[in-house]
């Protein structure tokens, strides 16, 4: 930060950041979704659940952004 800034030095540390681990680990756990059944709208579990993980990623990054800005 600028010189002579009073108070806390700026940082990007926050407990909220730990939430980001979820969308990193979840899509890599193949045992969760490596199956055909149950199907959703004709999509095997392998495909629809991995597409659904996108929502987990968007949700957590949005939440962390809002809580830490």
């Amino acid at each position: 930060m600028t010189t002579g800034e009073p108070g806390q030095p700026r940082t990007d540390r926050s407990p909220w950041n730990w939430l980001l681990v979820l969308p990193i680990v979840l899509p890599l756990c193949t045992f969760l979704f490596n199956a055909d059944e149950p199907r959703l709208l004709g999509f095997p579990l392998f495909y629809w659940l991995q597409l659904a993980f996108i929502l987990v990623g968007v949700g957590t990054t949005t939440l962390v952004y809002r809580m830490t800005r």
Binding site: D12, N17, L20, V21, L22, P23, I24, P27, L28, F46, Y47, Q50, L51, F53, I54, G57, T60, T61, V64, Y65
Partner: peptide, 24 residues
Amino acid sequence: GALGFYALPYTVVVYPLVFLVLAR
């Protein structure tokens, strides 16, 4: 088949992974 679908988890994982790194 399924192996080619790796492109999806790849592009899901990448954004939370670099969220803090890119800002720095």
